[in-house]
């Protein structure tokens, strides 16, 4: 990046962060929560971009890391009195790291579709364990709990409002982004990209490829777990649905829509996809009442969302951000 590029980049970064800081002050409650949620899904998508975009491994197991982050946070909040925000994060990260280590150890021996399927199977195994182990995990109903307060318990705490929660999530997502960005530019990150480009050659010039992949999966799982912790704190529950592989599928969709290998793209993709879904889910009932066409009220709104996704894959294969980058470079 040249000096001029760097200047544009950091100006843009500051403006976007400033907008996201102001947003909860002007948005109504529902959209404030919605925006916070987009940031959390964005963090999850960004964590998987480290594998999809930078290492060239498509993971369908990110729901497991995300879900274990949720359950780890739940464990800390339910077991430790008074509930401690930082312990919730720590437990969540530990749980997702443990799962990520387990999954990484077995799955990184495989490549391409075999890697994807193995991660999917592992996430389903964790789903079944969580779904059936009712005494510990609450089974189908999951666990619900009170939201821990912001601050240091026993010293000074304030309860979260939806605005302060948004700022808290924004701070963590922004820091995670900066950390992940640095990781992708570091020597380690360059090795991951070299593996993506030419795995055999990377091994031939002396890199233990499997070990690098393992660390990449663990790192990615750790940030996915962090997203899970944030989601648990926002929604005050942990549920097995979030360990289910459909979540992993959505994460891949966020990546494809936003642009893989850009880190920010997956956040944009998450915002775009969730916004699209939300918009269409309201559009048809609105048309039905406004234009007096009651048969449209129940129209399956995911059909147009799916069509848009397919069109984007065909005409914008580099994703929204990838496309914008290409345009700016011209």
């Amino acid at each position: 990046m040249t000096k001029r590029h760097a200047k544009i980049y950091w100006t843009g970064f500051t403006v976007i962060i400033a907008l996201l800081v102001i947003a909860p002050l002007v948005l109504p409650e529902f959209w404030r929560r919605f925006l916070t949620e987009i940031l959390i899904w964005g963090l999850l998508a960004m964590s998987s971009d480290l594998l999809i975009g930078y290492t060239g491994m498509v993971s369908f197991g990110h729901s497991a890391f995300f879900g274990l982050g949720m359950y780890g946070a739940a464990a800390a909040i339910l077991m430790v009195k008074p509930p401690n925000l930082w312990l919730a994060i720590l437990y969540g990260l530990a749980a997702s790291a443990a799962v990520a280590m387990f999954v990484a150890y077995f799955s990184t021996r495989l490549r391409d579709i075999y890697f994807a399927i193995t991660t999917l199977i592992f996430s389903q195994i964790f789903y079944v364990i969580i779904f059936t182990w009712t005494e510990v995990t609450g089974g189908e109903n999951g666990l619900s709990f009170a939201r821990p307060a912001l601050g240091i318990p026993g010293v000074y705490t304030v309860p979260f409002t939806s605005t302060t929660l948004h700022w808290f999530v924004l701070a963590i997502v922004a820091i995670s982004y900066l950390v992940l960005r640095r990781v992708t530019q570091s020597p380690f990150g360059m090795v991951l990209q070299s593996i993506r480009e030419n795995e055999a050659r990377t091994r031939a010039i002396g890199y233990p490829v499997e070990r690098y992949k393992m660390v990449a999966v663990m790192l990615s799982g750790l940030f996915a777990g962090l997203a899970g912790v944030l989601y648990a704190i926002q929604n005050r529950f942990a549920a097995p649905d979030f360990v289910y592989f459909l979540i992993s599928g959505e994460v891949v969709i966020f990546n494809v829509m936003g642009g893989i290998g850009t880190l920010l793209g997956p956040i944009v993709g998450a915002g775009f996809f969730l916004g699209l879904r939300e918009g269409f889910s309201r559009l048809f009932p609105w048309i039905a009442t406004t234009f007096d066409m009651p048969y449209l009220a129940e129209f399956p709104y995911l059909i147009p969302v799916g069509i848009i996704f397919i069109l984007m894959v065909i005409f914008l294969p580099q994703g929204l951000l990838g496309f914008m980058k290409q345009r700016l470079n011209q």
Binding site: R182, S186, P187, M190, V191, S194, T202, I205, G206, V215
Partner: peptide, 15 residues
């Protein structure tokens, strides 16, 4: 990337 294979390969925190 080939030169880096002898040292610094695991460094994650510097450009």
């Amino acid at each position: 990337i080939a030169a880096q294979s002898r040292r610094h390969g695991w460094n994650m925190m510097r450009h």
